[in-house]
Amino acid sequence: MEAIFYIIKTMISILVVIVPLFLIVAYVTYSERKIIGFMQSRMGPMRVGPSGLLQPIADVLKLVSKEIIIPTSANKGIFLTAPMLMLIPSLLVWSVIPLSEYFIISNINAGLLFILALTSLSVYGVILAGWASNSKYAFLGSMRSAAQIIAYEIAMGFALVGVLMLSGSLNLQNIIYAQSGSLFNWYWLPLFPLFLIYFIAGVAETNRAPFDVSEGESEIVAGFHVEYSGMAFAMFFLAEYMNLILISILCSIMFFGGWLSPFQGTVIDSYLSFIPGFIWLSLKTLIFIFVFLWLRATLPRYRYDQIMRLGWKVFLPITFFWLTIIGILIYLEYLPL
């Protein structure tokens, strides 16, 4: 009986996370088009609904009703599994993300490791999609993407090692608790270079501009998902935006205090205590999502060899150097603050 109750409770909490998440993804695509439109002096979507607000719903309907075309010489099984392999890890990670002080689906001890392990899995979707399509463009795209993701994953992991060293815990709630105090106790201050590297590596991991060589349309049409249509394409699309939101929320958890209020430790804090932690977390996350979209509107695409150079020769040495400094500061008891 207790077990059934537990399962139902977990199911409900999963639904509470997943259903709004899909809606958020839909409206992130809308806001992306609006924001980039604004930056390029255009209007963005305007026709469907008031100021284009129903556009994402129209897009979803269109994608669902389209036919999934499978190339004749493609490996059918892998061709259809690849989009799922892309989407599943990015959904799974949400099970350990603390959305507020009280709401987390599964508060596991090794949450940080779990996140690292799962984000490293999404590369399979890209590689297998590229291989199974049996197309030159798709294959080139997936090759580029695989090399890029592996290069940046290392820098990303090391950036999180800094967080681990300061908080002394792999549990995400404990990492947030360790940052409490004030705005200056958040880890962005002692770990500023690592934070920048984490965010940039996150952009590279999600294959977003300016690191979107895997789908560089000027060279290889649409990269790894060139042969996909309909719902199969929609899953890649969904996974990309899911990862975008994920990297944003992870940045705010690891370096910007998660659901902690930014006014902690000041006079205003007691007046603002009615605001739930979830609101603060969402605000921080929205800022990062905005930066993602901003980058896409502003920066030209990196050249492939420059991406690899940046990952291996710039980011990795900086993370090593900064981890050494953090280690020394912890040894001398200047850190954690």
Partner: peptide, 25 residues
């Protein structure tokens, strides 16, 4: 063994096998 199992996924599945697939493909 939570640490070992997650590290197995992180290292072998997330990195080694990706390179393996890379070569095999």
């Amino acid at each position: 063994a939570e640490f070992l199992s997650i590290i197995l996924i992180l290292v072998y599945v997330g990195a080694v096998m990706v390179l393996f697939l890379f070569v095999v493909m």
